[in-house]
């Protein structure tokens, strides 16, 4: 990371990053619930993107929600925060590519982000793309600056 040391070392980052972590962590935990509850519906959502090969759809639908859960827990708890932020950033980047692909094709489908059950439940749009882009920036911010994160990992180690 080649950001200026003085900027990275600013003490306020850990508090701003904590807010970002709680927001992103809560978001990912919430997003994982419906996917774990009904993996078949989520697999169908994934299939409608027409992005992944058939052989990868179910495995992706089964594993992704648990990556979201673990990343969410790690962000909220302050455990290996930058690894969690890296996971979130990679997921958001992947979602952005898939979303852009679907929007480019003009597909009218469910995002699959927070609900399953068709485009009416959770439709994709260019707004979804902007929203995901903002979340990607938040994750990158945490990854870049949260080097002494507040949370269980540093419990009692900071004054």
């Amino acid at each position: 990371m080649t950001l200026p040391r003085t900027w990275i070392d600013w003490g306020g980052h850990r508090w701003l990053a904590l807010l970002a972590r709680l927001y992103l962590g809560g978001l990912f935990l919430w997003a994982a619930v419906h996917k774990i509850a009904d993996p078949a519906a989520f697999a169908l959502d994934v299939a409608t993107y027409q992005f992944l090969p058939l052989a990868a759809i179910n495995a992706f639908a089964l594993v992704l929600p648990w990556v979201e859960v673990l990343a969410g827990v790690m962000l909220v708890a302050g455990l290996r925060v930058r690894s969690a932020a890296l996971l979130v950033a990679l997921m958001m980047a992947a979602f952005l590519v898939a979303l852009g692909h679907a929007l480019h094709l003009g597909l009218d489908l469910s995002c699959g982000c927070f609900a399953s059950g068709g485009a009416e439940a959770d439709p994709i749009s260019w707004r979804t793309l902007v929203r995901d882009g903002a979340w990607l920036l938040l994750a990158l911010y945490v990854l870049a600056v949260d080097r002494r994160p507040l949370g269980v990992e540093r419990w009692g180690k900071d004054s």
Binding site: L54, N58, A59
Partner: peptide, 9 residues
């Protein structure tokens, strides 16, 4: 859910 979908969605 089978890890690999048996047929096209």
């Amino acid at each position: 859910l089978p890890w690999v979908a048996p047929r096209e969605y």
